[in-house]
């Protein structure tokens, strides 16, 4: 089986207190913020590697991002991916989800035939979850989103798709694209020696010519959406603040709660 996983390197928002958006340009300020492999993408990598171990084949990871994004690919290689490609060029900069999905689809065409493509449910910084379905459309393959369990039965994919308060069991032929949710597996933690080996591997860097992509559909110029303004939401509480003696606070609050409940 040939499995492609799309991963993204993201700023570690939870670890950083810095405000990470340039209020002039709306562009994310990535300096000073540690960058990590998008946590939800580790589930996609783990699932791909586990399927490979069970059914044979190879796992190829692809990312589009700045040069440092290579670190995210090294993490994937150390988890058991066989090959990694980095899409990096000024032409890709400023891409929204449409332009990202376009670039990724060109890269996957270059990588060649595949049985499965995996994406994470969403990225920590973009939080859209749009790239997966857009990529499936560009690749002309079916999609299954929010997948929390995968089996292969008679060469068909049988997947649990998590919905708001139920899940559906669905079946589809390959090739197809799936986005996986947290909890589908427990991502392995690579050892130092696995990490060391991964760092030895060669990671080709591709630009627009390598992808035979139309430049007008890449990066900012290929993006239909524009971030026009960013601002910090009101930081002071609009509500009432109680502090001081815990018993006083509790008394006043109990009063309010009981009144509200009797309304």
């Amino acid at each position: 089986m040939r499995i492609i996983v799309c991963v993204k390197q993201v700023p570690d928002i939870e670890e950083s207190n810095v405000v990470g958006l340039d209020s002039e340009t709306g562009v994310i300020i990535r300096e000073d913020v540690p960058a990590i492999l998008n946590p939800l993408d580790t589930f996609a990598v783990e699932e791909a590697v586990a399927l490979k171990e069970k059914h044979g084949g190879e796992v190829i990871v692809v990312t589009m991002g700045p040069h440092q994004a290579e670190d995210a690919l090294i993490t994937c290689l150390s988890m058991g991916a066989d090959q990694a490609f980095l899409l990096s060029d000024q032409a890709f900069a400023g891409a929204d989800t449409i332009a990202t999905a376009y670039a990724l689809s060109c890269a996957i065409r270059k990588v060649g035939d595949f049985d499965l493509v995996f994406c994470g449910q969403q990225s920590l910084d973009g939080e859209t979850g749009q790239v997966g379905p857009m990529l499936a459309e560009n690749l002309h393959v079916p999609q299954i989103t929010y997948v929390k369990k995968i089996d292969i039965v008679d060469k068909q994919i049988v997947a649990h798709r998590e919905l708001e308060d139920m899940y559906e069991l669905v079946q589809c032929h390959m090739p197809l694209l799936m986005t996986v949710v947290k909890g589908i597996n427990v991502p392995r933690v690579p050892t130092y020696s696995e990490l060391g080996e991964a760092m030895e591997k060669d990671i080709p860097v591709w630009g627009p010519e390598d992808l035979e992509a139309e430049e007008s559909r890449l990066g900012l110029s290929g993006s239909p959406t524009r971030v026009t303004r960013v601002w910090t939401p009101e930081s002071t509480s609009a509500g009432t603040v109680f502090e001081g003696d815990p018993t006083d606070i509790a008394d006043q609050t109990a009063e309010i709660l009981i009144e509200l409940l009797e309304d």
Binding site: T236, T240, V241, A250
Partner: peptide, 26 residues
């Protein structure tokens, strides 16, 4: 605390038991 209508600043291990007590009494 920014989105709270009532923001209670303090140690929950003190406030919550006091709140349980106060609701019971009232």
């Amino acid at each position: 605390m920014r989105i709270a209508d009532y923001a209670l600043v303090g140690d929950l291990f003190q406030i919550v038991p006091a709140l349980i007590q106060a609701v019971r009494t009232k």
